[in-house]
Design a protein around this nucleic acid. Structure first.
Lengths: 338, 338
DNA sequence: CTTAGCACTTGAGTAACTTGAGTGCTAAAA
DNA sequence: TTTTAGCACTCAAGTTACTCAAGTGCTAAG
C-alpha cells in the first residue's frame, strides 16, 4: 500500500515523497514514524530510493516494475477521451495507413507524450503485382503491389528512349518470375539473377534496377508512424541537445524502433527506464500494446513518456485505444473485403 | 572599421566586445579611450548597444543591417566545402526532388544551421496528364502529371465494383476537359462542373473526387524541403519549449515559410532578427538566395541561423551553393531534355 | 583629436548562512 | 512485538554578502 501510494504521489507531483505527507494520506491511521519504518524496509528491498540521504523517497525501476506488475489498476477511461478517440477514427479513410497515422497522432495528443503506431501486417508480404506506367516523354512510374494491399510507387526518368514493348517485356519478366514470392526473396533475386535478364531488354538497366530496389525496400519496411514528436520536448528533462538528437534519430529509424518495441504480446507491456533495450531510452518508459485486426495480422501501438508517468491512466488509455483501433480496422476491412 | 570589428568579434565569440580588446585588434594604433569615444558615437547612431550599463557592446539589428549592406565581404569558400557540395550533388539522381532535398541537407550540415530549399518552378504549372491505374481487386491508383514533370499519385480503394470501361471514361473526361489548364483552374472546375459529369460514369464519385482533389493540391503545393531541423536545438538559445514548437510548426507549413522567405531577388538577401516578417523568428536571421535553373524557373535556398551568425562565411557559402546547385540543375535538365 | 587616469557599474562567481523537509534511531507506550 | 513521540542530524535550495574582473564615462592633460 505504501509503495502504491509513493508511486501514485510521485508520478503526479514529481517531488520525492516523505513519511509525514504519506501517513496523512493513507486510509488507516498510522504515524509518520511507522511509515518511516516501512519505507526503510521497502528501501532495503530495493523498491524505493532516496535522492539524497535526508530526502523523501522515489520509486526505483524495480519499484515501478512491482507496481506495474502487481499493484496498478488501469484507470477507467474518461468518457471525454473515448469520444475523442471514436470521433477521430470515425472519418471515411481511403487508406489504412491514414488510420494508423492518425492513431499515433490522437494518442500523442491525449497524453502529451510521443506515440508510435505500426500497421498490422502478416509476417511476410508477397509480391502480387508490378507495373511500369509510362507517364510522359521520359518518365516512367514503377508501381508495386503486395498481397496485403500495400502499394509503393516511384517515378523515374529514363535516359535512352524505351519502347512500350521493352517496358512490357520487363514487366512480364518480373511478373512471371517473382509474383507470389515473399519480398525478401524478391530482393534476393534482385541481387543475383534478375539484372542479367533485364539487361536483355534494356540497354541501361541501372536506373530501373535502382528504382525497383527502392520500391521493394520501401514495401518491405514496416509501416511505422510517430505522433507528437515535439512532445518529447515537454517530458524530456534532458537539456543535452545531443541526447535529444539521438532520440529523434532513433525515432526516425523504424527498424531500430522495432527492436525497442519488442515482441508482440497479448498483454499491454510496460518497459521501464533501464529495462529498455536501447540505452538512449534509459530515462523513459514505454507502454506497448498489440492490436489484432481480424485475420489481417497484428499491429502495435506504443506510448513513450517519462519513467515518472501516471501508469494507471496511461495503461487504461492505451488499452482502450487498442480496442477502438482494432474495432475500427475490422470495420474497415469488412467494408472493403465484402 | 570599428563596427565591422565589433560584428566580426561578437559573431565569433558571442561575448560583448570591449574597448581594450578591440583597440588591440585594430590595424592602426589607437588607445582604448579613443575606441570608447567612437563606440559612444556608434551607440548614439543606434548601431551598437550594451547589454548592461558597464558591458561591452554588441551590434544592434540596425548595426548588423549596416554591416551586411556596406561592410561585409563574403568569405571565399573553402576548397573543402566546395568539394563536399560538388560530391554530394554529383550522384545520379533519378528525380529532381532528390537533388533539392539533398541540397537542404548539405547546406544544413555545412553550417550546423537549418536550411530550406524550394524547387524551381514556373509560375503556373499546368495539368499535362491524368491516369487511373487499376491495381488489384478494389484498388486504383490515381496519377497526375504536370507540364514541368511533377508527378503525384495516390492509391484509393473503391467500394463498388467499377469496370475498366468506367475508369477509362472518367480518365477520358478529365483529360479532354482539363489538360493544358493551370492547376488552380483545374481545382476550380473540381468544385463546380466536374462532379456532375463524373456522376454520369460512377455511382459513388465522392471517393474519386476526394482523391483527385488531394492529388491536385499536392501537385499545386510548393515543393519545400527542410534540412537540419534538429540543428535548431543547437543554435536556438531559447529554453522555451512552446517557442521551439511554434518554430517547428512554422517550418512544417510550406505556405507560411514562403511568406517568410519573401520575394525572389537576384541578390543574396539577409533578413535580420526583428526585420523578419514572422515575429516568431525575431531572434534569428535568414539568408535567402534565388537560383535559376536555366529556363526551368527559379528556386530558392535559404539558411536560418542565430542573429549572431558569422555573416561573411554564411553569405559566401550560400552564394557558392547557389551557383553549384544552378549548374547541377542545368546539367540535369540538359541530360533529360536532350 | 587622442590619451592617461580614475571613479563607478555590473554580472558572475564564491562562500557563509538560514530554512525546511525529511531521515534514522532510541526509548517509551500500546 | 509493534507503534509512536521525540530528537539530533542531513542536505538541497534559497538568500545574502563579498570579491573580482571587465568594462564604461568623464575629465584633464598631451
Amino acid at each position: 500500500m505504501i509503495l502504491k501510494a509513493i508511486v501514485r504521489d510521485y508520478t503526479s507531483s514529481g517531488v520525492p515523497v516523505g513519511s509525514k505527507a504519506l501517513a496523512a494520506q493513507l486510509p488507516m491511521h498510522v504515524s509518520s514514524a511507522t511509515v518511516r519504518n516501512e519505507m526503510a524496509a521497502l528501501e532495503e528491498l530495493g523498491l524505493i530510493a532516496k535522492t539524497h540521504s535526508s530526502s523523501g523517497r522515489i520509486p526505483s525501476v524495480k519499484g515501478y516494475r512491482y507496481y506495474v506488475d502487481h499493484l496498478v489498476q488501469p484507470d477507467p477511461i474518461k468518457a471525454n477521451d473515448i469520444d475523442i478517440i471514436k470521433s477521430s477514427l470515425e472519418g471515411q479513410f481511403l487508406k489504412i495507413d491514414e488510420i494508423i497515422e492518425t492513431s499515433a497522432k490522437i494518442l500523442s495528443n491525449l497524453t502529451s507524450y510521443t506515440a508510435f503506431s505500426l500497421k498490422p501486417e502478416h509476417k511476410q508480404s508477397r509480391l502480387s503485382g508490378f507495373r511500369l506506367v509510362p507517364l510522359g516523354k521520359r518518365q516512367v512510374m514503377a508501381v508495386l503491389v503486395t498481397d496485403n494491399g500495400d502499394v509503393e510507387s516511384q517515378t523515374f526518368n529514363i535516359t535512352t528512349k524505351i519502347t512500350g514493348d521493352q517496358l512490357e517485356a520487363v514487366v512480364r519478366l518480373i511478373n512471371d518470375q517473382l509474383i507470389g514470392k515473399p519480398l525478401d526473396e524478391v530482393l534476393a533475386s534482385l541481387q543475383s539473377d534478375i539484372p542479367m535478364q533485364v539487361a536483355n531488354y534494356l540497354q541501361q538497366p541501372e536506373g530501373f534496377l535502382k528504382v525497383f530496389g527502392d520500391v521493394l525496400t520501401q514495401a518491405a519496411q514496416d509501416r511505422f508512424y510517430v505522433g507528437g514528436r515535439l512532445n518529447l520536448l515537454n517530458f524530456s528533462d534532458s537539456n543535452d541537445v545531443d541526447e535529444l538528437k539521438s532520440l529523434y534519430t532513433l525515432m526516425d529509424h523504424s527498424d531500430d524502433m522495432a527492436d525497442v518495441l519488442g515482441q508482440p504480446s497479448d498483454h499491454i507491456q510496460v518497459q521501464i527506464g533501464s529495462e529498455m533495450t536501447n540505452d538512449i531510452l534509459r530515462d523513459y518508459s514505454l507502454i506497448t500494446a498489440t492490436y489484432e485486426a481480424g485475420d489481417h495480422g497484428k499491429g502495435v501501438i506504443a506510448l513513450l513518456g517519462p519513467t515518472r508517468m501516471p501508469y494507471s491512466r496511461m495503461i487504461g488509455l492505451v488499452g482502450a485505444f487498442r480496442q477502438e483501433l482494432a474495432q475500427r480496422l475490422i470495420d474497415y476491412y469488412r467494408y472493403f473485403d465484402q
